[in-house]
Amino acid sequence: MARWALRRAAAGGVLLWLVATLTFALVSLAPGDVASRLSDARISPAVRERWRHDFGLDRPLASRYASWLGSALSGDLGSSWTHHRPVTAVLAESIPNTALLASLGLLLEIAGGVAFALAQLRRPHGTADRFITVVTLTAYALPTFLVALGLLYVFSYSLHWLPSSHLLSPAGELATGWAKTRDLLAHLVLPVLTVGIAGMGAVARYLRGSLLDERTQGYVVAARARGCSETRALLTHALPNAMLPLITMIGLSLPFLVSGSLVIEVVFSWPGMGQAMYAAALARDVPLLMGGTLVATLAVVVGNALADLAYAAVDPRVRV
């Protein structure tokens, strides 16, 4: 176990370094830099050169890379060129917003997916199964922005039930305690639904497939033969095994918890990592881009490792 952890950590470290190096090169070699992008075309070249000098953009790429790597290794991600604050402070604002939305979305996606799959398996190939297949396939195929706009149109602009954007209303910003929480919850509904609906279809399709396989397996047949009800056979025997592929899916979803979705964040004016990284890329804010990339890559590494651990925990045939 210790050797496994060491090996994974080493491999993860190498991956982080590779991704960081590649990203640094891509971002630095892209045409334009923070000084050309930030300034009005009329800001004098002298001022622009001053910015370039301050950010070290007048030094060779290798030297910039070396100093970035040196600081990063000592835990200093530097200061954002556009926010004028430490990169960690900017990330610390954006990641919780993204994580909140993505984790609730993920929960809804799993819960909804499992519920749909179980409903379908009550009578495979029956009317309900076919109907749900259509629904889940549609949900899976719909572009996220369309789902978001549809929800907005119905619940926000037509029915006026739910707020259309942001984490909090202006009144909620100034409120405290329960009033603030309630405001936040109201604002969460539509974005979480959007994330959930998009993923739900995939979960349901996966699970239905593996449940169909599992329910004909010997141990399920044996359970039924022992007098187990169909529901019980499905829920307590087939489901845990059918969930195995989902573990990989969830592990792979973990990066989404920190990287966010630009489309959803823009539509709902949600200040998460998607928007932060998009703006950083447009503005050529190298330190912020590098910081965001590192965190996202770390999430991939950790997500995969957790998925493997979870696999080993639920499936005795797998050893780490």
Binding site: P31, G32, D33, S36, R37, L282, R284
Partner: peptide, 11 residues
């Protein structure tokens, strides 16, 4: 052309 890239080219 992407905005920052365009500005760099014009420059």
């Amino acid at each position: 052309v992407e905005y920052a890239a365009l500005l760099a080219r014009l420059d």
